[in-house]
Simulated scan of single mutants.
Amino acid sequence: MPVRHTPPPPNLDVDLLRAFATLVDTGSFTRTGELLGRTQSAVSVQIKRLEDLVGARLCDRSGRSVVPTPAGEQLLGYARRILSINDEAVGRLVMPPVRGTVRLGTAEEFASQFLADILAEFTRSFPTVTPEITVDSSAVLQSGVEAGLFDLVLVKHVPGEDPGTTIWREPLHWVAKADWVDVMEGPVPLAVSPAPCLYRRFMLAALGQMGRSWEIRCTSAAVSALQAAVVAGLGVTALARSTILPGMRVLTPDEGFPTLPDSSIALVSRFGAATPAAERLMRFILDRMAIPHMSGIRRVK
């Protein structure tokens, strides 16, 4: 009997995947073309070729910026992984090794969740690049990257309002000690970070909308200190879901605590052309955070 051979699946072109991933990062065909050295129409043709190849629409062009469709979201994780492996192989075998120091600032929330694994893998892949890490408040880091003191920062932000590429998002909850009881006629005792902390802003705005009075019982820029204050019963705070500890409970809208905006972390680079080392680390972080098991409690949409 003749042997029937199943035709092989199509190969995904690396150049098309790079155009697609860059378009998702920038939200703009024009900006993507500038970064890749192509015209806007050439980028559009590349995206159309990729859509024809996978048989699905990958980008929604109806809004002010281009965003991935559900099929595009699904492809994006694979695209970043393929690009990461391609670039690592080229970097090791073809291009001269990238050397230098990258000044990376990070908010505590991201450092405690993901940074150790990402940096361990990065230093194994690129041993001649040295990350120099600073953990500080998002406000300090944002000012620092704008002043050129950092190459990259990972900061809390409001998607669509603040600069940067959102790489991690999860629910933000009001929390208190497990046996805490709200005395409705009194002010809400709060444990907060110093202004202009984003979570502090969210909490005070929500309480103001509800007409609730409040008083600050604990102030600290360290998440661990706020966690300790809550467990000790000193006050109520807002924590990303993954940082809620045993001995705490989530406060609900039925108890008078409105739903808060999500907790989001963005990757922001300094103004101007990035150094080769900073560009390599930036791409590495974006690639790793696109992998499902590294992308937090909720995938970025």
Results as ranks from 00 to 15, higher is better:
G144N: 01
Q113I: 09
D13W: 03
A278C: 13
S44F: 03
S242F: 08
G186T: 13
E109L: 09
T106W: 04
R4E: 09
A21D: 06
I118P: 04
F257Q: 07
S242C: 12
I216L: 12
V145F: 06
F126A: 06
G72N: 07
V268M: 05
V231F: 11
M282C: 14
K301C: 03
A290M: 02
E73L: 09
R4M: 02
I291K: 11
T123N: 11
M203R: 01
I133K: 03
A222C: 09
L93E: 13
D287S: 15
I297H: 10
H157M: 06
K156Y: 09
I297K: 08
D87C: 14
M289S: 04
L226V: 05
A107V: 11
P127T: 10
A178N: 12
P194T: 09
P253Y: 12
S193C: 02
D52T: 13
H173N: 14
G272E: 10
A290F: 04
A232N: 15
L149H: 13
V14I: 15
W214M: 10
R18V: 05
Y78W: 14
R270F: 03
A229F: 09
Q46H: 13
V24M: 03
A116E: 07
G235C: 13
L16N: 10
A228T: 09
G100S: 03
V223C: 01
L281D: 01
S295P: 03
Y199R: 10
G164H: 12
G160D: 13
R241M: 06
T32I: 06
R200P: 06
A273N: 06
C218R: 08
K177P: 06
I82Q: 10
P70Q: 06
